[in-house]
Design a protein around this nucleic acid. Sequence first.
DNA 1: AATTTATGTCAGCTATATTGACTTATTTTG
DNA 2: CAAAATAAGTCAATATAGCTGACATAAATT
Lengths: 192, 192
Amino acid sequence: MKETTTLEQGQLTSAPQPTQVVPYDLIELLFFAYREFTSDPDDVLAQYGFGRAHHRVLHFVDRHPGIMVTDLLGILKITKQSLGRVLKQLVDDDFIEQRAGAIDRRQRLLHTTNKGHELAVRLARLQTERLDRAIKDLPNGTTDTVKQFLFQMIDATARREVANLINVGPDLDLTQRPDLNGMLQHTEQDGQ
Amino acid sequence: MKETTTLEQGQLTSAPQPTQVVPYDLIELLFFAYREFTSDPDDVLAQYGFGRAHHRVLHFVDRHPGIMVTDLLGILKITKQSLGRVLKQLVDDDFIEQRAGAIDRRQRLLHTTNKGHELAVRLARLQTERLDRAIKDLPNGTTDTVKQFLFQMIDATARREVANLINVGPDLDLTQRPDLNGMLQHTEQDGQ
DNA sequence: AATTTATGTCAGCTATATTGACTTATTTTG
DNA sequence: CAAAATAAGTCAATATAGCTGACATAAATT
């Protein structure tokens, strides 16, 4: 390891401005923490020839068996074309399978295969381990505080949607609720 | 006023499932929150023809005036080639300037120009605003709890390095005072 | 019957990253 | 001092992950 942070003696001095209401430490911690958070899955995925995009697809399909392609696109906020490539690989390699909808036969409902589920769980566990390590020495209640903070980081107009999404168990079928908006009657108002 | 939304008290706190050793809600909140966190700068950067990579470079150069290229690479954990392209654009467009090191003339020490500094601050303020909105309805102490959590998410072996970088000191002062914004004096010599 | 929806596909483009080899200038070291 | 190491830059080739827009097909809805 080479002498980290040789960065010019004394140059870490902050800008001597009144603009110092900016929480640079928090901003940078978010950057570093998130990078670490994704690093463990990345290493495993690379062994399968997959990347982070595959992880996201695999994760949300595993969490929402039978999800429609359209809903998955809505969650990931990517285009059909971007999803297409990644999804095709996951299907070709037998991590995800598509089944025509029983009611609406246009739909290709997505499910993880056993193999896909196992990988999804393996990756989730890696992230869980890091989260557990991070939290274990912190005071009780830290997890809830962090969850609340993260939730509030989301635009108020999108919070219901996310709240609904992350509270859906693996049994619930998103296909039965094509409109993710307004599903949660939550009493959050304060538009700011 | 504002009965602190606390996002349905019981909803994002522990799920009642017995097999729920994996905190899917927390994992997914990290994904959604981080995406939102980067979205505001992304919109502004696009107006300049820049992307997130430019933001990272601009940010760390602005925070560490006179930083060496090598050290910047170490922070960003990207290759010289990846940095090169992005840095060249920032220099060509007069957001960053390079000055030969006074002591070691091989070095091209990086500084933001006035224009670059202003953009860096503008982007940091956007992120600050989102952070402030997220925290304002949460209990006192939330910021410190979140900082501690994020810090602990980093591999133990890398924590000191990050702590030095963001100026929280070598021995995890992170567990202490809520205001480490005003005292960003230099760290430099501290072993390692 | 006409329209909308769900999905897929084509062609081409952009941004960001990678590796490896090589050059130039400069500093450090044996 | 000569040799080696370092700082930085460059070239060529490649990969991943995203984008737009246009178009096609099947199935459902109006």
